[in-house]
Design a protein around this nucleic acid. Structure first.
Lengths: 343, 343
DNA sequence: GGATAATATTTACGCGCGTAAAAAATGAAA
DNA sequence: TTTCATTTTTTACGCGCGTAAATATTATCC
């Protein structure tokens, strides 16, 4: 148990009998001191529970070991999971992640980037809001520190991009839906802020053409991040008006699908791939709640573990070699078909 | 546009023609300098976009303006919302919130508290994991800085507690269920980590006794934070075995209810309060997804805006007056009945 | 045991800013 | 204009640690 409060490294040096510069080396990298010294330090350490002052440490270092992570909307379980995965990757590599949410608003994204700048991070991992992102602010931080984008791409911004191959992902589920029943209609937001939405629409069109079917796109009004609400109200209205020419609807993302499933239930429309079902609904992303919808949702799972790991390791390489790749690499991972009950 | 990079306050003083101590005062509190000076500074400020070095600032201040916020599980939309509300309250009061998640693990909670300690926060707002929380670590930070608990109470820990009145909340929904149909059974985890769960069970028992009904408690095995999964598997098994003596089940929280609704759907059991429905299911917390379950979930809404505001303002008062209240106050807000389709 | 390499200690400076004290400048009121 | 209070400037020190250079101490190997 601690006898008395240790105020700084000087005092800890006196008590432990190790010189301050050696202690400083140890705290920077425990392996940089001899094993016997390390053990002496660690014994003293858990006798007196001293911790170096973070602020004093970072004041002198030109570059900290902080990594800024920004996701568009942390309340969305999908971004929560991917943000968390990135966080873990940073910790495992010995960095200090700082996970921030833009709460769906460009202003917040800009604010987050600004406050990150003053924390002098070694690098930033950004899942941008997309279309509405403030390019200037992003460029500004990009000049200061290495920046890697994930989830949503913005042309020529940052040193690299890591995400899901929307063409493959949408292509695969369209193929599955066509083979297992009627070809799908496509349900999406009219003005999506996320650039993935546009890629998905294009992938749907291309895929339907490839299979020789006529595409049908239906767009919901509204903006913001209340996708379930929008899927429920507008998707429900479309269902009750009977606008879909086939019995299958592919939603641009799971949250829209969750809303539409809820609406279908309310209308007494039986959803599923079995006989006696009038409607099939599928999604994209494998949202954590898609397992528990009624019926459970057939969807494409993003490999967010791979995305998170690759994004983090790409950033670490840039930081540690201190050189950006000559060409901006765009890495796309395949989605995986998750067949559940809804389609 | 910035002509040249300003490295420190000294250089900014030279360029702006204001002395460094005056600038220092300004950055601490813009109102502490004369209006004309303030304007001169602000003009220079947006010409040169200089920002003081956070690390150098906090090194000298004995107490920062950081507020640590720790919630048990940020991926749970309920905690995400309440955490966010607390965050906003801090920003509005001029503090810098740092929102951390314990990811459901006591180790993480302890780690978060430790790393907060080294950030020398002005105060900490903690929604503890509960039973499994590491008392020692919590006590340790409590000696350093003011600590206010919210959501889940731990006896005699921290300067105050703010949460929901489980007795009122459960009492009200039990009364509603009794008046509108058969009296409810109670479905919960066998070994809940959250102390609210115990309060809710007791409230259920007391309430059933008050109405002269026999209570029936059913407990699910399992631990961790996968409540939907547990509700689906074990709740589903109970449904198929027909163990519930009445047609109404009150779940200890919405996430269990969401799982059970999913199981009921799978079993072809029609849930709802209307005729033709064999089962009623109700929850607690008004989880953001409860609006979109099939059928939508009848539940008790916590007033998390009030909880967040009160928790934050309580902490601010302690920080600003620099004195803890003589008695540890426990503030409980009422829950609100949300009647939807499931019960 | 001696030579050599690896590691630790001593000494000293600087980072960017908070802050105190004394002197100077400014503003408002008489 | 004088007077006095308020604000700003000047000067100077210290915070806790990174880090460099010179020196002293170890460990390793023949």
């Amino acid at each position: 148990m601690p006898q008395k409060k240790i105020r700084n490294m000087e005092e800890f040096a006196a008590i432990s009998g190790i010189s301050r510069p050696t202690l400083s080396k140890y705290f920077n990298n425990p392996d940089s001191v001899r094993k016997s010294t390390r053990q002496r330090i660690e014994i003293a350490l858990d006798q007196h529970d001293y911790r170096p002052n973070v602020y004093a440490i970072n004041q002198n270092r030109q570059t900290t070991r902080n990594i800024g992570i920004i996701v568009p909307y942390l309340a969305d379980p999908f971004f929560n999971e991917i943000g968390r995965a990135v966080e873990v990757a940073c910790i495992e590599a010995g960095y200090s992640p700082i996970l921030l949410s833009s709460h769906g608003k460009p202003d917040h994204e800009a604010e987050n980037l600004e406050s990150l700048r003053s924390l002098k991070p070694a690098g930033v991992l950004l899942a941008p809001l997309g279309r509405e992102s403030n390019r200037k602010t992003i460029d500004k931080i990009s000049r200061d520190v290495p920046l890697v984008l994930f989830d949503a791409n913005i042309a020529e911004v940052g040193e690299a991009f890591i995400g899901t191959d929307n063409a493959q992902s949408v292509g695969l589920i369209v193929e599955y839906l066509c083979r297992s029943g009627e070809p799908p209609c496509f349900f999406e937001m009219k003005t999506p802020s996320n650039p993935n939405a546009n890629k998905r629409r294009q992938a749907y069109l291309a895929s339907m053409e490839r299979h020789g079917f006529t595409p049908h796109i239906f767009q919901a009004e509204g903006h913001g991040w209340g996708f379930e609400e929008i899927g429920q109200s507008q998707g429900g209205e479309m269902l009750s008006r009977g606008v879909f020419p086939t019995n299958t609807v592919l939603c641009s993302n799971d949250r829209l699908a969750i809303g539409m499933l809820s609406a279908a239930y309310g209308l007494g429309i039986r959803v599923g791939h079995g006989s006696g079902c009038r409607l099939r609904i599928a999604g994209q992303d494998d949202h954590p709640f898609s397992r528990f919808t009624c019926p459970s949702l057939t969807t494409m799972a993003q490999d967010y573990a791979a995305i998170a790991d690759r994004a983090a390791s790409t950033l670490f390489r840039i930081i540690e070699t201190n050189e950006s790749p000559e060409t901006r690499a765009e890495t796309l991972f395949d989605g995986r078909l998750v067949m559940r009950d809804s389609a």
